[in-house]
Simulated scan of single mutants.
Amino acid sequence: MNSRHIGSSSLQKEGRLYFIDNLRAALTMLVVLHHLVYFSIYNEVLSQGSIGAVMGLLFLAFNQTFFMGTFFLISGYFVPSSFERNGATRFIKDRFIRFLVPFIFYVLILSQVQSIEVYMLNQEPFTWQTYFSHLTYGPMWYVELLFVFVCLYAVWAKFMSKNKLSVVRQSKPPTYTMLAIFVMILAVSYFIIRLWVPALDLPGGSPKVRAFVGLFTASGYDLPQYVGLFILGIIAYQRNWFRNTPDSMGRAGFGIAIGASIHLLPLVLIFGVDELQFSGGWNWASLVYSLWEALFCVGVILGLIIFFRKRVSRQGKSWSFLSAHSFVIYIIHIPIIAIVMAGLKVIHFPPSFMFLAMILITIPLCFLLSYIIRQIPFVSKII
């Protein structure tokens, strides 16, 4: 089988992976919906114990198993080619501008917009004390952690170069054995980290460890997933997996996710809910839950990649627009949710219809504001 060095002049330039752009755009909308549900439950727009709240919690739990990890997988896939194309210095500089500038802007400015309800409804005065108390990275933990990952990759790539260890790109499809090994490593990693950082932000664990991982990710219990999938993305690029993974693996992926949910989740729900044992600790319920989450994560991601490659491989105007604006939408969506929710509460909008109204207002507003923001010349160069 032919193989070529990454960055070699003889390497044929591949066409753009539009299906990956489309998948990333779809995941961005899923993130928006995820946070619409989360903040609706947290602010009791969906009242506790209601069917809507229960369904919302299940929606959040299932999403959490794969959606942010998929972003890290996709990001990892495109890191090697960008590094080789730009060189280490320009690569880090570009990532610093693209990642940390929006991160800093969010922390200093948009975090206050995210807290608009406490200023408007709770009539909390805007002072330096309240300003600093409401500083948060919001959804930008993702770009912060991704910046850490790409910097570590740059160090590793320079080390490989100095030691004259060639990085070879092949066209070698993944095997089920490889996927099984990854699932087992991920499951064990889940089980271990949740000894200190329980799943789903449930009580317990080590406050010091939780505080440390909280510097980099909002869900520290999923940190092994983010690390593992970013590395897997790099391997996927080196072996061209986004293109050469058999279609049958996509069907198998969805089948694995469904099968794991049917056979493992009931055990967790029946025997692991008592004292929240499934969330972490030295018990079999936590181990089974970790195994289910690893299987569901890998299965759904595999299925989605193949589904989009087969069914959503082209870009019309809608997908093109969404792909171009997805990063801006990701940055601004939580402040927009906060503004919409606060506005509806101010006008005493009927609670029964508030969640639906939030969806119908927030999503178009995200599109509109992202379009306006991208028209700003300096901003458009960054995001």
Rank of each mutant, 00 (worst) to 15 (best):
I6N: 13
S8P: 05
L11I: 15
G15I: 03
N22E: 02
L36T: 04
Q48P: 04
Q48A: 08
F59V: 09
I74F: 05
P80E: 03
S81H: 02
S82L: 12
G87K: 02
T89K: 13
F99L: 09
I109Q: 01
S111I: 01
Y119S: 07
N122P: 00
Q123A: 07
F126N: 03
Y137E: 04
C151F: 15
A157Y: 08
F159M: 13
M160H: 00
K162C: 09
K164F: 06
K164I: 00
K164R: 13
S166L: 14
S166C: 02
Y176D: 06
M178R: 10
L186D: 08
L186G: 10
S189G: 04
L202V: 12
R210S: 13
R210D: 00
R210I: 12
V213S: 13
G214N: 10
L215V: 04
P224Q: 09
I231L: 15
I234P: 04
I234L: 13
I262R: 02
L267E: 04
I270P: 01
E275F: 13
Q277L: 12
G280R: 11
G280S: 08
W282V: 07
N283T: 10
W284F: 03
C297H: 12
C297L: 14
L302D: 06
K310F: 05
K310A: 10
G316W: 03
G316Q: 05
S318F: 15
S320Q: 13
S323Y: 10
H325E: 03
V328E: 08
Y330G: 12
A338S: 14
V346P: 00
I347W: 06
H348A: 12
F355H: 03
M358I: 05
S370D: 04
I373S: 03
R374L: 14
Q375T: 02
K381G: 01
